[in-house]
Design a protein around this nucleic acid. Structure first.
Lengths: 360, 360
DNA sequence: CTGAAAGCGCTTACAG
DNA sequence: CTGAAAGCGCTTACAG
């Protein structure tokens, strides 16, 4: 039976009902220390009778561990983060850790607040996909307070001590472009959220503090450079993270005097907008245009032609981050140097890419 | 400056540094009680100096509130749950509540464990999409312990006191079928996860304890009944929650001696499998087959023909549940009867449905 | 194996 | 406005 009304029963109530001290009752229920079988049974019976639920807050305050990890992402509704999150929970929960989730909408202020609140709630560690790769002082503070942090999807400048699990985005984009080059394309366009950073990328060598989209753009440039194909700025079409914006971007590429014969879209939202634009223009793919997207979403094999894509190991990204963080929490990695793991993406060639037609 | 090494500073350290009692330091930092401006400044300065972070566990133990709500779903990677979850976080976070997430994989045992752990962590309330609508004693226990529970997506038998926010699935499916009937279809098939429950549904009147798929199947039956069209069991094709299974289900419907001219798929995974099967069969849609799916996913407007769908207010489902739970937590609904809100789904007619061809 | 006591880090009456 | 003391519900040495 459970007690109704009144406050929920505490260890004192159980101890009293079982005729033992709270220390003994705690040992019997908590599975620590030594208790005789006879006593244990009495305590368990009393606890069941009263509908006792241990208070995790009190326990955590003493043990110093909440068995909770914080996860901070920009948007859970985004399949990328949702999938990574499921990788995290699949690792954390069997290990006895719950997940405290914060959705920041990509706003730095929200992220700072979330990290701060999680620190106050005394999470045992945090996994964060940072909103601004350039700003990491809030993460640095958390680490200084003893909360291990694992970065996913993007590195952050100012927090070199944090482990990171990222996709090798530069290589992923380069491989996609190499695929197009092999097919014989020379006019290769790219639709990217980092359109404004072309100049900086070509100069700099920075690795941290860059958005994945910028790193992918660098891969595009690198692959062209390697093949001796000149990078034409007109072929770099900027777009916002929206289908409509990518739609317009593709149309503007097609309207060029010397339009591309192939286009790389640096994420799946941009790809869906571009795909749609190509359809609406009545372009035959892959004959008149080769198209490559990112992420193996369901729609990419439902459309005709099926879309050639770069497949990111998203679930694995989350699972690895979870494992890494648990190792930290359990002290497995004490004192070791931070690890920066790069996962490889995989090109999946399907129907939307082919040799360019000889004559346009 | 922050303190390095050693334990993180407590209120005692701050109080000592500021030359006041812990009570006063607490008042200055916690924003409760009265403190003189001068004292407040001294305390704040000391706290900043020491890098003080209040311990939320200690605070929660006293105040009795963790400002955390638990959310239990079967699969965060599923767009339906991911979207509902974002509705929840968007409501909870601005109100100062964090979300503790549990991913059960649809297993009842995992759900029971999650609910139990959340109770121990003293969440202020829970939102749960139950794995088994027929089994709710663990939820009943939580409510008896004073933790308000709001059910989403499905009602659960044995927990009538819990609020619920669901989609009016019966109406949603009925409307889809009515659309097909209006177009002139009489042989209307359905691909459903609840294929085995047809007989039970036609007899019973139970509302709780049913999976959404079963309720949708009932809507299908009801719409046909209302139109005086006989329900042909051969047109009810069972499938598992997988694209491949739905693929096979559509093919088996098409292979019938008297095949359907239209098919309703009761969720979006089934719809994608069926769509693919129709394509591979070389069927022209909507001329040779009309098809309706559930959920407005990106792919449904990327394929040709665009898919006619029933659009569920998924984000709103989550947001409403969040609001409802916060009202409970804040005592707004104390003593009132439980609310069972049904949200309406909306039929979005696109290109995959049309009049059946007169002669087959 | 068991218990009395201290203590985790706060907030809350209660005095002053 | 400020402080001394009690207490939230546990776990952990320390004795026995």
């Amino acid at each position: 039976m459970t007690t109704h009304g009144g406050a929920s029963p505490s260890l004192i109530d159980v101890a009293r009902a079982a005729g033992v001290s709270t220390a003994t009752a705690g040992r019997a229920l908590g599975g620590y220390g030594q208790v005789s079988e006879r006593t244990r049974e009495r305590v368990l019976a009393a606890a069941a009778e009263l509908g006792y639920r241990p208070n995790g807050l009190a326990r955590s305050m003493i043990t110093g561990s909440t068995h909770t990890i914080g996860v901070v992402v920009a948007d859970v509704a985004n399949p990328f983060f949702a999938t990574a999150l499921s990788g995290i929970t699949d690792v954390a929960q069997p290990a006895g850790f719950e997940v405290l989730l914060a959705n920041t909408g990509g706003a730095l202020a929200a992220e700072q607040r979330a990290v701060s609140v999680m620190s106050e709630k005394r999470v045992d560690g945090m996994i964060v996909a940072a909103a601004q790769p350039g700003e990491g002082t809030h993460l640095k503070h958390a680490m200084e307070a003893g909360v291990p942090v694992v970065l996913i999807d993007r590195q952050v400048s100012g927090v070199p001590e944090a482990d990171s699990i990222t996709i090798d985005n530069e290589h992923a984009a380069a491989e996609a472009v190499a695929h197009l080059l092999e097919l014989g394309h020379r006019r290769i366009g790219v639709i990217t959220e980092a359109g404004d950073q072309l100049a900086r990328l070509r100069a700099g060598t920075r690795r941290r503090g860059l958005f994945p989209s910028a790193v992918r753009l660098r891969g595009y440039v690198r692959a062209l450079d390697a093949a001796g194909v000149e990078v034409d700025e007109a072929l770099v079409a900027p777009a916002r993270y929206e289908r409509g914006s990518a739609y317009d971007a593709l149309l503007s590429l097609l309207d060029l005097a010397d339009p591309p014969t192939a286009v790389l879209c640096t994420d799946n939202v941009l790809a869906s907008g571009a795909y749609r634009a190509a359809q609406d223009r009545g372009l035959r793919m892959p004959e008149e245009l080769s198209l490559i997207g990112f992420d193996d979403e369901p729609w990419t094999t439902l459309v005709r032609p099926e879309l050639t894509i770069v497949e990111q190991p998203t679930y694995d990204l989350g699972a690895r981050a979870g494992r890494q963080l648990l190792d930290h929490i359990e002290g497995e990695r004490a004192g070791r140097a931070p690890q920066h793991i790069q996962l490889k993406a995989k090109l999946v060639a399907r129907e939307s890419t082919a040799r360019p037609v000889a004559v346009r």
